[in-house]
Each structure stands twice: as structure tokens, then as C-alpha cells.
Amino acid sequence: MRWDRSVADSGANPLDIAVLLLPPVSLGTLGAIVDPFVEANRLAGRRHYDVHLVSADGAPVALPGGGRLSVGGALAALVRCDALVVACDLHQAGANESDILMQLNRLARAGAACCGNRGGTGWLAAAGLLENRRVAVHWEDMTLYRERHPGLVLCASLYEMDADRLTASSSQATLDMMLGVIAQQVSPQLADNVARQFGLDRIRPGHEKQAVPATSRIAQHPPKLAEALLVMEANLEEPLGADEIAECVGVSRRQLERLFKQNLDILPSRYYQELRLERARQLIVRTQQSIVQIGLSCGFSSGSHFATAYRAHFGITPREDRSRATLTGSTPATEPPC
């Protein structure tokens, strides 16, 4: 089975989509995932998609507003599928977390495309299924993902389709993403017709960026620059190249450099390094982590490289800075909990 195959041909078999419900999950979240495929089948007059629900243990799933939603079986009983969509409003580890992560990996190895909404993405990331992939993360969750999952290429986009890994930043973005799937696998016309059934005048493309509240620190900047700043802040441990950042934001490298120069009077590479150094200084003065480890976690290739850049920027070595912080009593005795 292949997720990227077309199902538009009259003889094509329906794509088998399993939706894993992991509490807390609302009917709104479920509808954003399931309804586009159901409506596509109805409007097309044939089954392009077979959608079925599963839960971790096969038992009905409790809904946040009360009531329970029945499913067709347990995750462990699912042998294989074309796509597994993890539906969850908030990733919360539980007693059966290790078993769920094991089953997610099993199905991914069997060839299932892995998709997640905002909370579902957290489960996929915890399972290690999003490493080195572009991942759409809600702007509120950027810092958390940066700290917990440094191997992800975090993006401030509405949704990302990186081969067989699909992630959406919100419930509304999940709806757009599923409409985008229909456009790719069946036809843009069918996807547009489905969108209009939901009262939408257009399908937002994945590369559109999330609306960040005006209270955000970066909202004062032009939208493309603000998006670049979010991407940089989300990828400190393994810094992206200027071309990669520009691609995530949807501009050319020259345009990116012009934005930084006009608004911040600095080149993107220089700003990125200073951002990583500021993060490193926070860890130097507030924790007892190894200085070398801090340098590596902030994207510097070696201890000497880190120390040189640190001194050039702050006029003091990391070790001297920590000693000064210790004397003033600002460094904790132990590493604070995550």
C-alpha cells in the first residue's frame, strides 16, 4: 500500500485510513479529520476513502463534554493501513504510553503514513517518527517542542506534508490539510467542492503561516520576518542554513537577507548566532549543565568554537560568566526540572 498513490482512477482501491483517538479528543477535532473524506466519497459517488476509528484498548473514548464515542477496535489489532491519523487535542502521557508508542512504530514500519493534529503530533514526535522532518507546530508549543524534540525541523506553517509524515498546527489547519490530501490524491476540483460544503471559500495551502497574536514579541515585525524568527527560535540545537529558513518561510535567500537588514540591521546568520548565544548564556548562569554540552545544545560544533563565539559576543568566557553568576548567587545548585 502506498499513501502517495492516486485514487482518482475508477479501478483504484479506496485508501484505508485509521483514526486513533487518544484522550482528550473533541468531536470538533474528529470532524476536521473524518468529515472531509466522508464528504469526498459522497460527492464523488464512490468510495475513495475507507475511514475507521480505533482506540488504544478498543474501548469507547470519553469526550471532553461528556459521553463516549465507540470505536471499531484496538490499536494493537490493527495489522496495517495506508494512513494512521492520531487525533488528540493535547498530548498527555499515561500509563499505557509505552505500548501506544510501540504500536505507532509498528504501523509506521509496516508502511503507514503518519498524520497528526496538534496533540497527535506530540504523540508522533514522542514515538520518534518525525525526526529530521518538517513539522507544523502551534506557535504556543514552539518552545516545548524545541526543548523536547531537537531533531525536528519545526515550522510555523499551518500544516506540513513531508512525504508520508503529515502534521497540522490546529484543528482548522487539520481540515485544510485533509482537503489538501484530497486535492492531491483525487482532484483539486473535488477538494474545492468539499470545501464549499463546509462553507469555505478556499483551501489554505500548508505554507501559509499561523496567525500569531499581536501580544507576541515578534508580532511587531513584518510577517515573513516574524516567521523566520519563529523558525530560528525553534531550531537552536541544529541550526538551519539560510536557504532552509528561506524555504520554510517562502521567500528567496536574498529576500530573507533584505528583511533582516531593513528591519534589524543584521544578517540572518549573525542574528541566528546571537540568538543561540543568548540561549546559551541563560543555561550558563541558571543551570549546572556542562559548558560543552550547553554549547552543543545551542548549535555550536565544538567547545572551542562555542567559547570563542561566546567571548567575542559577551566579552567574557562561558566559564568566567558562570563563576561570576555563582558569586552573585544566581546559579542554582542543581539542574532545574524540565
Rank of each mutant, 00 (worst) to 15 (best):
A95T: 15
A219M: 08
S330P: 02
Q288L: 05
R253H: 10
D57I: 10
T328Q: 14
S302Q: 04
Q103I: 08
D82I: 12
I266F: 07
L15A: 13
G206P: 10
Y159K: 02
V61K: 02
I291K: 02
G315L: 06
F306D: 01
L75Q: 02
L225Y: 03
V34R: 08
L267Q: 11
G315R: 08
Q262K: 11
E39H: 13
L229E: 03
G299N: 00
L124Y: 06
A40R: 05
G31R: 05
N235Y: 08
A333V: 12
V85K: 01
V135S: 12
G111D: 14
D192K: 11
L21T: 00
P213N: 02
A183R: 08
G28S: 06
R254Y: 05
M161W: 06
Y145Q: 09
G303S: 13
A226P: 09
L53V: 04
N193P: 04
R322L: 13
Q197F: 14
T331M: 07
L327Q: 14
R217G: 09
D176V: 08
T326C: 10
R68Q: 15
S6T: 15
A183E: 03
Q288Y: 01
Q293C: 07
L296P: 02
M102D: 07
R42V: 14
K224G: 10
D201H: 13
D16S: 15
R319W: 11
Q189P: 08
E160M: 04
P60A: 14
A333Y: 09
R118T: 11
V194G: 00
